[in-house]
Design a binder for these strands. Structure first.
Lengths: 144, 144
DNA sequence: ATAAACCTCACCTATTCAGTCAGGATTTCA
DNA sequence: TGAAATCCTGACTGAATAGGTGAGGTTTAT
């Protein structure tokens, strides 16, 4: 299972959400347009994130989405695993996928790759990404 | 682009090849059967590896494959890149794939993940994997 | 009642994955 | 020379996944 545009879109939208006033829910349409994401596609992703406990949603007028778990406690790995499933570079990484365990040491390589990706992605939170963007914006202001 | 069974099969077959006498070429059929790989599928993979300069081939009776580059100079990353293409966890990793560079810092995360995988896979050679297997075999002999 | 939002689930098209098939070219040996 | 063993090539295929779209329903504020 790869990292697909699902995770990519979702992370972008979540960063957008994190940068806004967290007191009021933000309509999905606003996030989708701000980041150039097909809104009906994003609906699927946010529905999954809500079920997973990352987001909360409010229906009706003045409805929208907000974080259920604070964005500094949501890692990129969380999002990837919810939307794209566990990272498995080549199978052999899960227990019984390979029948040649005893005679084949190749699987270790893929496991190492998996762990390495997980370490990177679990080390970055949505909050951090939002802050990085803010500092980018700030920097670019000097050039305007 | 993910890491698919192509790389997985190819690495296994190459390890098998590395463990055999390198003086004579080994028929693909032998490697395929030793590792449970569909032989016609492996043919495609080995053809690509030959074109890429990893293997050399000999036709006819007593033909087969042998390494063109010594197996301690062939990394797992080499194989993956030849057969499955460059590792790109979510695009944004290549230059112009993302039009939001200036305002989006999310791409950095995927780049980090990519680099991290590349580091792991480029740190392991076919020779090393072959040696690991030999030591596994040796160890298991104590229990027979 | 109406409009703004979320919710659900089915559907769809293109691409990729994991092979298979058919036949051809080259080399060795009898 | 002919047969056998091996590599070589390109087309094809069935299944799954990726990346959405569409149609309609439910909840809520005004």
């Amino acid at each position: 299972m790869n990292i697909t545009t699902k995770s990519k879109y979702a992370v972008r939208a979540l960063v957008e959400l994190a940068r806004r006033n967290s007191d009021v829910p933000v309509p999905l349409m606003v996030l989708a347009e701000a980041r150039g994401i097909p809104s009906q596609f994003l609906e699927q992703l946010f529905a999954a994130l809500r079920r997973a406990g990352i987001l909360q949603s409010f229906r009706g007028v003045y409805g929208g989405f907000s974080f259920n778990r604070p964005p500094d406690q949501v890692t990129v790995l969380d999002i990837v695993e919810i939307l794209d499933g566990p990272i498995e570079p080549a199978l052999c990484t899960s227990e019984d996928a390979c029948d040649k365990r005893a005679i084949c040491s190749v699987g270790d390589v893929w496991v190492q790759a998996k762990l390495s990706v997980e370490e990177v992605l679990s080390g970055v939170t949505i909050q951090e990404l939002a802050l990085r963007e803010s500092s980018l914006d700030g920097a670019s202001m000097y050039y305007i």
